[in-house]
Design a protein around this nucleic acid. Structure first.
Lengths: 124, 124
DNA sequence: CGGTGGCTTTCACAGATTTTTCACGGCCGG
DNA sequence: CCGGCCGTGAAAAATCTGTGAAAGCCACCG
């Protein structure tokens, strides 16, 4: 059993970014409270980026952190997974952009309100 | 006169999750008032998951909690019992999903209304 | 005892998902 | 037009899950 009481609602190892809540311990990501289904790579990539919120991170560094090892020339794994991750994040939170590309340098993670889009676009 | 709780550490040994009522003391589970017939393993697996509602729980942890001991490589016991449990829960409450799989991470228990929730708004 | 039935553990295989690779197409500066 | 960079759909390869079924246990019963 646990050595000391813990609060299930506020895990120590939880990251926040915009409407995202990332529970690094258990591999769970909540977008506005709703759980996202991310694969292991997607999740670790997200964690790696959020841990350096606002900073530009090179593909080499992302690869070392998430895949472990050196990025080989021509390997597009990072790009592919950034694409997948973007896709899921945008599906969950259409009005925000999270991952920004800095051509020639790498990627930067930063939640950014796109516009004052706050109304349901449910018009016929 | 035994009208008081056995243990002061356990405020209430009855758990609730959606339409489920789980009486840990009696080993009884009611689905919308109707009793379910669960085996010991199934019951303890259910309790272990409900106690961490909404969280992703690894197979290793479930095994330690329910079976007691370390999960050996290749042991599929947890999967098999998750399958059995799902089967009985769905038989009792067809319109709800309880156990969600997070490939690569584990399982998450969370009662979820099953309206028309399966739209892939994947526009090309 | 031998048979019966429920529960648990193991095994095996099909199907589902994820990860890795490729390749084509769009952008942009020269 | 060319070449470097990037976004991504898709095929191929690798892993992970769901589950029926066989096999082992054990309590119970005629």
């Amino acid at each position: 059993m646990a050595a000391f009481p813990e609060s299930p609602d506020v895990p120590a190892d939880t990251l926040y970014a915009g409407e995202l809540e990332i529970r690094a311990e258990e591999g769970l990501v909540l977008a506005t409270g709703r759980p996202l289904t991310l694969s292991v790579r997607e999740f670790e990539l997200l964690v790696a980026m959020v841990k350096r919120l606002g900073a530009i991170i090179t593909r080499e560094e992302l690869y070392r952190t998430v895949w472990g090892g050196e990025l080989r020339a021509g390997d597009r794994s990072v790009d592919v997974y950034v694409s997948k991750l973007r896709s899921k994040l945008e599906a969950a939170l259409p009005d925000r952009r999270f991952i920004h590309t800095h051509p020639g340098f790498g990627y930067r993670f930063q939640p950014q309100p796109s516009r004052n889009v706050h109304m349901e676009a449910a018009r016929g």
